[in-house]
Write a protein that binds this DNA or RNA. Structure first.
Lengths: 153, 153
DNA sequence: AGATTGTCGAGCGATTTAGTCAGCATTGTA
DNA sequence: TACAATGCTGACTAAATCGCTCGACAATCT
């Protein structure tokens, strides 16, 4: 019942791209270092995000990755589904044909249907812009803390 | 992000016990056959359910398993948490010390906190009695279908 | 004593997770 | 044109988890 590192790393990477929007492509190595993601693993996540149209990539010197759409038009649900596959807690609730729609708890499907729908609604309501805003706040707070160490908890 | 067969099988087993409440202990083999659960696997699930006080078991001829509490006082949340461990989608939201409370998406913890709470609320509101009632209805419907085959979809 | 039940822990094959790595493709710059 | 900087791809792997089996043991009834 856990979200994997794929979802985590992927979202972190997108936040990094959103923070530097309009400044040209950001390189794989920079994303990896700044967000603490294994560089060669990040490759695969970026590839997936590109396949699903969240980012654009350019090769060669000065190349890198950038958002393909404004952060406000990218929602957490779609990003996670791209990286993790369907988030359905039961195979039989999933659209994804990779889940072999016929095992656990299908008898209690009705219980999970609502829970799953509610979860999707909430995740769909959160955009990359929201996440980025929070992130900026967090960084601001961190800088204040660093400047006045005696206020630390 | 999936519920495993443990939760599934465990709930099915408890429903079976609830359906035969007051008729003395039900044997492992009977539960397994009637609910289509591998017998030797069921062992471990029953052991866990006993450790957590959902069922009582008696050995020897005529022994078996029975509910330790009335079905209305057993909720789906607790059963699943017993069998699956914490249902928290992030380690950092879990009470369970088995989850090493410090990896994925902790930066987006606030997103998941609410989703998780809502899920728990809903699962806590469903009792074994509710599940059993649904099951009885399902069986009734099945019998009607069997008696009048030409009504089948 | 012996049959019938539950209890417990070791082990095992398959799958998934979380990566690494080597080699190729593309593109800017000199 | 050469070459350096970047991204792209697929094969590989180590470790964890899942779903289960098995064998030995413990309790209890007749």
């Amino acid at each position: 019942m856990k979200i994997s590192t794929k979802g985590d790393y992927g979202v972190r990477a997108l936040i990094e791209l959103a923070l530097h929007e309009g400044e040209g492509p950001v390189q794989r190595a920079d994303i990896a270092h700044r967000r603490q993601i294994p560089e060669s693993y990040l490759d695969h996540l970026l590839a997936q995000l590109r396949r699903d149209g969240f980012i654009r990539s350019t090769r060669g010197p000065g190349g890198g990755h950038e958002l393909a759409r404004p952060p406000a038009e990218i929602c957490l649900l779609h990003v996670l589904e791209s990286l993790e596959g369907s988030l359905a807690p039961l195979g039989c609730l999933s659209d994804d044909p990779a889940d072999d729609a016929h095992d656990p708890l299908c008898g209690q499907q009705w219980v999970w249907r609502e829970i799953f729908d509610e979860m999707r609604r909430r995740l769909a309501a959160i955009s990359l812009a929201d996440l980025t805003e929070r992130e900026r706040e967090r960084e601001r707070a961190e800088r204040v803390m660093a400047a006045a160490p005696h206020y630390k908890i």
